[in-house]
Simulated scan of single mutants.
Amino acid sequence: MQKVLFVLVLTASLFFKVNAATILIYHHVSDKTPKSTSVSTEQFKEHLELINSLKLIVVPLTTITDAIKANTPVDNNWVAITFDDGYHSVYDNALPLLIQYKFPFTVFVNPKMVGPSKLYLDWDQLAELAKHQGIIANHTMAHENLVQDGLTDEQMIDNILLADKIITEKLNQSHKLLAYPYGEYDHKIKQDLKKLGYVGFAQHSGAVNETSDILALSRFPANGIYANPKTLKAKLNSLPFNIKSITPSDTKPESLNPLLQVSLLNKDFYQSQLACFISGSGKPQKPEWTSKLDFNIASNNEIPKGRVKYNCTAPSISHSGRFYWMSKLWINL
């Protein structure tokens, strides 16, 4: 009987299909800019070489979002490269390497901040990026915080539409892709984005697939303390949890011990091996399983001020050496 059960479990694991695409987020590509949001030119080249060595395929960001919107499987080898804010170093240091490797990429810009400037790109430079497989997308007009800046619904919608209008006029591109400034959003903002037909990009970590939230897609940071190629390799090989729902949606916590509730569609890992890591805590924290596919996690201690993440990982049963990975970003001001 035990042998039969073992065979059944083994057979089920072999046929467990999981699709995973990865989106990377960068800001500066320079060793002269703030380290927390920067990757050196040499490190960036190492990242591109790592992607090549893993035989991954760098695709336009829209290739991934089109698949998710159509509820069709993403390819396990897909990776998308994104840059937030449109800094000058993307043109100076990243573009020559992206051309060399023939990789497409996306730059999220704020039209009010577009140059001429020592810090930000100008429209001519953005046009040059567009000639070399660059998607130029929306990051709001002037990097407004859509949660904290007190914008009304009407003001926020006008802001997003105006930014898209200017990008279209200047570059003839309109992709309806929005990267939330600071990675901050709430349920109301997501619903407004849905009405506008946009895709939203956040700043929490994890791979994506057709079950991912199209209004808050996760991206792995690859700059600052996250620039190490060894840890980046694990992220590029990560798998997304097949998620039914996550509550709450908002990045602003309702308490200093915020409760995260996750409901899965299915799972390919043992409950006992799911571990969650909370920013500022050195030890992993075990979640509370409320059913076979539902778990809760809340910080045992009050979360500190600033940006706090709950990162949850579990080793895959059917894909040896690969880990499921998801995170929740809290912004406690």
Rank of each mutant, 00 (worst) to 15 (best):
L171K: 00
S174W: 02
N172H: 10
K170A: 02
H187W: 10
I160Q: 02
L161F: 04
D158G: 01
E184Q: 15
S174N: 10
L161W: 06
K188I: 14
E184H: 15
S174A: 09
A163K: 07
K170D: 01
N159M: 02
Q173T: 06
A163G: 12
H187P: 12
N159R: 06
K165H: 13
A179V: 11
M156L: 12
I160F: 07
I157G: 06
E184D: 15
Q173F: 03
Y185G: 13
Y182G: 04
A179D: 09
P181T: 07
H187S: 14
M156Q: 02
I157P: 09
L177D: 06
D164G: 08
L171N: 01
K165Q: 14
Y182W: 07
L178W: 00
L162I: 09
I167N: 03
Q155M: 09
D164N: 12
T168Y: 14
M156S: 02
L171I: 03
D164F: 06
L178R: 08
D186N: 15
I157S: 07
I167T: 09
M156F: 02
H175E: 10
Q155V: 03
Y185S: 14
I189V: 15
L171E: 00
N159C: 05
Q155N: 03
N172P: 00
I189P: 13
H187C: 12
I167A: 05
I160E: 07
Q155P: 12
H175M: 11
L171R: 03
E184T: 15
D158E: 10
K176A: 03
T168C: 09
L171A: 01
